[in-house]
Amino acid sequence: MIGATKPNSDDAANYAHVAAHRKKNYGESLPVRLTPQVMIHYGSYGSRVMAAGGPQPHKFGAGEHDALKENANFLTHVQFSDLRRDVISAAVQKGRCAYCNQHDAGQVDHYLPKSKFGEYSIYSENLVPICSICNLKKLNRYKCEKGERLFLHPYFDRLPSGSVPFVKATLTFAKSVIIKFELVQIPGIGNDIWKILRNQFEALGLPARYTLDATREMQSMKDAFYVYYSRGGDTLVDYIQVQLGTKSNAFGPNHWLPVMLKAIAESKEFCSGGFKKLGPPTPI
């Protein structure tokens, strides 16, 4: 859930290259004939994405959409190697997934799916850095039943970039330490963006994914918790605060890791011994 900077690309030249290649090597003249229409769609991409009621597919003639959709096959060609590299590194946290900010972005996503919007199958503003997990969960979805967008657009939508987090973690203590993540609508997040942000949070399964990673991280830090707690005073809190500062600088305030660290640092129960519900220290 982070922004990204759209890659610099000569989209008209890229389309012309693919259209000419298909005509010369496969005798397919339709992509060339569709060039003027596709260029018009390129120019209206932003307004279509942000339209009230969500993006609407264009009604092409018989065979036209399928022909445009197949342009995506050329993204693996050498001609597009620079574009693929630029897309994958486009996130604010370079190399991170622009949808979850959790995993490395090793794949290129079509924000508007090529199955519905073939005209944008090689358009740079429609190509977004994504991790394999988000890609499998996103699939060809792009809007809700009510018509509103299901996902924020990493190049167009902007969330507050200050130090106040909109992702929050809460702790409960039972047989173990249970951490849960939720969203908080902070100043700077308008109602329209808030709806899409919540849609994305649930559609990508981020609450459960963040909980899983945070639980693993707490387990990996467990022995350090015991060591600093044994030194008495606020030593454990100070240790967690140092980790929080380091991770916030590295990942920003809305990454699950600094959010987790903030929650445990602020929990009196956790820092006064509640962390022991994570289990005993590792035997030496």
Rank of each mutant, 00 (worst) to 15 (best):
R84W: 03
N25W: 05
W256I: 05
Q241N: 10
D82R: 03
K24I: 09
H77Q: 14
P283R: 12
Q79D: 05
I2S: 07
A90W: 01
Q37H: 05
G205F: 14
N199E: 14
G61V: 15
R48V: 00
K268E: 14
Y123Q: 08
L197P: 01
R149W: 08
R33P: 00
S44V: 13
S267I: 07
T282V: 11
V227P: 01
L127E: 10
A52V: 10
S163C: 01
A105W: 08
T5Y: 08
D223K: 02
F225G: 01
M218S: 09
A16R: 09
W194I: 07
Q243H: 04
D109H: 04
A105N: 09
F60S: 02
P165E: 02
R22P: 04
Q185L: 05
G188A: 04
K6D: 04
P31S: 01
A169S: 10
K24S: 13
H153P: 14
E266C: 02
G147W: 13
D86H: 10
F60N: 03
P280C: 01
T5M: 12
V108Y: 11
D192E: 15
D66P: 01
G54W: 10
M218Q: 11
F225M: 06
E125N: 10
I178V: 15
K146S: 15
F166I: 02
M221R: 12
R198T: 10
I193H: 05
T282I: 14
H41G: 00
C131G: 11
E119Q: 12
F225E: 01
H17T: 08
W256D: 04
P57F: 03
D82S: 08
F270H: 09
T246D: 11
P165W: 07
M218K: 05
E148F: 12
E182F: 05
M1C: 05
N191G: 04
N101Y: 00
P165Q: 09
P207H: 06
P57L: 12
N249H: 07
Q37W: 01
L127A: 07
A67P: 02
A250I: 03
P283C: 04
V78D: 13
K268W: 01
S29D: 14
K168R: 08
A105S: 10
F74Y: 15
S81D: 13
K69T: 10
A16Y: 03
N140M: 13
D213W: 06
G27A: 10
V32P: 00
A105I: 03
T76P: 00
P129M: 09
C271Q: 14
S47P: 00
H58F: 06
S161G: 07
S248H: 07
I130D: 05
A174E: 14
